[in-house]
């Protein structure tokens, strides 16, 4: 299948490793991934801040970029941005008096999947260890981001995929369905309430004893990770695509300083993520250290 990646603006600019992880998982299944070069943002930041008029060119651009590309389905590693395509883009277009754009936005949204939707519902992946070779030897808890849960009704798709990764020791998050407090511009327009909500969520995360909190939206994870970094709670926030992409030969490292860059110097040669992990000189257990060394050799 030819799959178009909608990286989303935050993953594109801040979390390129999440986009790469999405690519690795899909390529591993034998699919071709393309990146429509004109893509920008889903427009959600503008819409949710009330700037519907400024959202219109962003919507127009997204629809143009994905209408021009040739693909079977599109995928994004974000429940929130995928929900925005279907729930907001047609509304923005209609508010701007462009019915034709609204219809085309609906068509693009109709073929765009959130990553776990695509994996489970379309590609039939139910066991990440067996079907993707995923390996991640850590204790993990999971925060379901609101828009994936309530607008896309993802249910347990993301969680079940993570649970099926070899090595994952899963712990349930208490009050998981409560919002983390990000809310886009809410996070700096109402910083006190947002911080209190993050504090509540982080309290629940640390209570699970997990080393890693995963989820399906980089924005929520950035908010939680940023607050954890301030409190020194010592839990890593990791997008579930990176956990699915992690393998014995090329494992994801979650200790040491946060490094968002795609591993390896900018150049033609691809390097494994393990290189960055071993360079940081830290390994949480024997197993990843050994594998890190292995993959160092294979490099």
């Amino acid at each position: 299948m030819r799959i178009a990646l909608f990286a989303t603006c935050i993953v594109d600019a801040m979390y390129p490793r999440v986009a790469l992880a999405t690519v690795r998982v899909l390529e591993r299944l034998g699919h071709e991934v393309v990146f429509p070069p004109g893509q920008g943002c889903c427009s959600q930041m503008h819409v949710n801040s009330g700037y519907l008029q400024d959202a219109l060119p962003v919507v127009r651009n997204h629809v143009k970029a994905f209408s021009a590309a040739d693909y079977d389905v599109a995928v994004a590693p974000s429940g929130s941005c995928v929900a925005s395509l279907g729930h907001q883009q047609p509304m923005v277009a209609r508010a701007g008096g462009d019915e034709d754009l609204a219809r085309r936005a609906e068509a693009v949204a109709g073929t765009t999947y959130e990553l776990s939707q695509l994996l489970v519902d379309v590609l039939g992946v139910t066991n990440a260890a067996e079907q993707l070779g995923s390996w991640f030897p850590h204790t993990v808890t999971y925060h379901p981001s609101c828009h994936g849960m309530r607008l896309l009704r993802l249910g347990d798709r993301q969680k079940d995929l993570v649970r099926s990764v070899a090595g994952v020791e899963f712990t349930e998050l208490p009050d998981a369905e409560e919002c983390c407090g990000f809310g886009g511009t809410f996070s700096f327009k109402n910083p006190d309430v947002s911080a209190a909500m993050a504090e509540e969520k982080i309290g629940n995360i640390t209570a699970t004893g997990a080393q890693v909190c995963t989820g399906g939206d980089a924005s929520c994870l950035m908010h939680l990770g940023g607050a954890i970094s301030r409190t020194g709670a010592g839990v890593a926030t990791v997008h579930f695509a990176e956990i699915l992409a992690s393998t014995r030969q090329n494992p994801l490292e979650v200790t040491g300083p946060v490094e968002l860059s795609i591993p390896g110097p900018t150049g033609r040669r691809h390097r494994t993520q393990a290189a960055a992990g071993s360079a940081a000189g830290s390994a949480s257990s024997d197993a990843p250290a050994a594998v890190a060394a292995d993959s160092g050799e294979s490099r």
């Binding site: 990286a7 993953v11 594109d12 600019a13 801040m14 979390y15 390129p16 490793r17 986009a19 790469l20 990146f35 070069p37 996070s187 700096f188 327009k189 910083p191 006190d192 947002s194 911080a195 993050a198 950035m222 908010h223 990770g225 940023g226 607050a227 970094s229 301030r230 946060v258 490094e259 968002l260 860059s261 795609i262 900018t266 150049g267 033609r268």
Partner: peptide, 22 residues
């Protein structure tokens, strides 16, 4: 309002878009 209560991680060297081009 963001940094009052949270850090922002150091951005990556390169965006996905620019990395992917190579």
């Amino acid at each position: 309002g963001w940094t009052d209560v949270r850090d922002i991680p150091a951005p990556p060297r390169e965006s996905f878009r620019n990395w992917w081009a190579q």
